[in-house]
Lab assay of single mutants.
Amino acid sequence: MGFKLLSKLLVYLTASIMAIASPLAFSVDSSGEYPTVSEIPVGEVRLYQIADGVWSHIATQSFDGAVYPSNGLIVRDGDELLLIDTAWGAKNTAALLAEIEKQIGLPVTRAVSTHFHDDRVGGVDVLRAAGVATYASPSTRRLAEVEGNEIPTHSLEGLSSSGDAVRFGPVELFYPGAAHSTDNLIVYVPSASVLYGGCAIYELSRTSAGNVADADLAEWPTSIERIQQHYPEAQFVIPGHGLPGGLDLLKHTTNVVKAHTNRSVVE
């Protein structure tokens, strides 16, 4: 069995187990497998329904001669939608809004960016022009300005110390501490036991640490421990890039980060 097929099978099995364990909360999309990078042309966006009122959005972007996937989250909030992270750029984010209108038909009224990198804030200006209120932590807003990236308009308070959590509509926002970046936030959907790890969490097929220019490698494993301790009931975990899975993604990420750190020390 090929690795790609095995990865998709694991996603399907995880979703099936969740649907059985929580039949009222989960209505997993039966329309197909989780979209992969090879299936999404740059400039297009796919939506994948995880649970009743919960979707991931998947886009792709060219970077350094390669094409990478990027995940975000959409959560229903009454007759409105909360968006977590842009679709990595203005063109993708405009396509995301169009796809949401086509498939869901509810307005996106608020959006949260989970850290300051372009795959999370690139497209904020498109959201703002569409009347979406954009939010991020003060740290993310400051770092985005320093980096020359787009800056969300509103500040999220109460997320300055490791372990801080605040309720934001249908989700809980959690600051686990520094990891992929010093400002990275985690998003949890309690009604569906869905954990969105953003770039602080890796997919299972990833074996290298990737972009760690703004990471705190020493603190990252401790931050992941905080996530595990705060959300032990999480059933569906979405990484910032690639295929979702279960809580095993947290341990896998820790292993990859520690291996990278150990290699760096040896070198």
Rank of each mutant, 00 (worst) to 15 (best):
G2R: 11
K4E: 08
K4Y: 08
K4R: 06
L5M: 15
L10Q: 15
V11Y: 08
Y12T: 13
L13Q: 11
T14A: 08
A15T: 11
A15F: 15
S16A: 14
I17E: 09
I17M: 15
A19E: 15
A19K: 15
A19I: 15
I20E: 15
A21E: 15
A21L: 13
S22Y: 10
S22K: 12
P23D: 11
F26C: 11
S27A: 15
S27D: 11
S27C: 13
S30A: 14
G32M: 08
E33Q: 11
E33T: 09
E33N: 10
E33P: 10
V37D: 15
S38I: 08
E44A: 12
E44L: 09
V45N: 04
V45R: 01
L47Y: 02
L47T: 08
L47N: 03
Y48E: 09
Y48A: 14
Q49P: 14
I50C: 03
I50F: 08
A51N: 10
G53A: 09
G53V: 08
G53L: 07
W55D: 00
W55K: 00
A59P: 04
T60P: 05
T60I: 14
T60A: 12
T60D: 03
T60H: 09
T60V: 15
T60W: 11
Q61K: 13
S62E: 09
F63H: 09
F63M: 13
F63I: 15
D64P: 07
A66F: 15
V67M: 15
S70C: 04
N71E: 00
N71F: 01
I74T: 07
I74R: 02
V75N: 02
V75I: 08
V75R: 02
V75P: 02
R76H: 09
D77M: 05
D77C: 04
G78W: 07
G78V: 09
D79A: 10
L81N: 01
L81P: 02
L83Y: 01
A87W: 01
A87P: 03
G89F: 03
A90I: 07
A90M: 09
K91A: 15
K91D: 15
T93K: 01
T93N: 00
A95S: 12
A95K: 13
L97H: 04
L97E: 03
A98S: 14
A98V: 14
E99C: 07
K102F: 07
Q103W: 11
G105A: 13
P107R: 15
P107C: 05
V108W: 03
T109Y: 08
R110P: 05
R110S: 11
R110I: 08
R110Y: 12
V112D: 07
S113M: 06
S113D: 03
T114E: 00
T114W: 00
T114K: 04
H115L: 04
H117R: 03
H117P: 01
D118G: 08
D118S: 09
D119H: 02
D119K: 00
D119Q: 00
D119V: 05
D119N: 05
D119P: 01
V121T: 05
G123I: 03
V124T: 09
D125K: 08
D125M: 08
A129I: 08
V132F: 03
V132E: 03
A133D: 14
A133Q: 14
A133N: 10
T134G: 00
A136K: 04
A136M: 03
A136Y: 01
S137C: 02
P138W: 08
T140L: 03
T140R: 03
T140K: 05
R141A: 04
R141G: 02
L143D: 00
L143P: 04
L143Q: 08
E145Y: 14
E145R: 14
E147G: 11
G148I: 02
E150I: 04
I151S: 07
I151K: 06
P152M: 00
T153R: 10
T153A: 12
H154M: 10
S155T: 14
L156V: 09
E157W: 12
S162P: 15
S162Y: 11
G163N: 08
A165V: 13
V166D: 04
V166N: 06
F168Y: 06
G169K: 04
P170M: 04
P176M: 01
P176T: 03
G177T: 01
A179S: 06
H180Q: 06
H180Y: 07
S181Q: 04
S181L: 03
T182E: 13
T182L: 14
T182H: 11
D183M: 01
D183I: 02
D183N: 08
D183P: 01
N184A: 00
N184P: 01
L185M: 06
L185K: 01
L185R: 02
I186A: 07
I186S: 03
I186L: 06
Y188A: 02
Y188Q: 00
V189Q: 00
V189E: 04
P190K: 08
P190G: 07
P190E: 10
P190L: 08
S193V: 07
V194E: 03
V194S: 01
L195T: 01
G197M: 01
G198M: 04
I201S: 05
Y202A: 08
Y202S: 07
L204H: 12
S205C: 04
S205A: 10
S205G: 10
R206G: 08
T207R: 12
T207D: 15
S208D: 15
S208K: 10
A209D: 06
G210T: 05
A213S: 12
D214I: 04
A218P: 09
W220M: 01
P221R: 07
P221N: 08
E225F: 11
E225Y: 14
R226T: 05
R226V: 07
Q228C: 07
Q229V: 13
Y231M: 02
Y231Q: 01
P232N: 08
E233F: 11
E233P: 04
A234I: 08
Q235V: 11
Q235C: 06
P239F: 02
G242P: 04
G242W: 04
L243E: 15
G245I: 02
G245P: 01
G246C: 04
G246N: 13
L247F: 12
L247E: 08
L249Y: 04
L250M: 07
L250E: 02
H252G: 01
V256S: 03
V257H: 03
K258D: 09
A259M: 11
T261G: 12
T261M: 13
T261E: 12
N262E: 13
R263K: 15
S264M: 12
V265T: 13
V266Y: 14
V266S: 15
E267N: 10
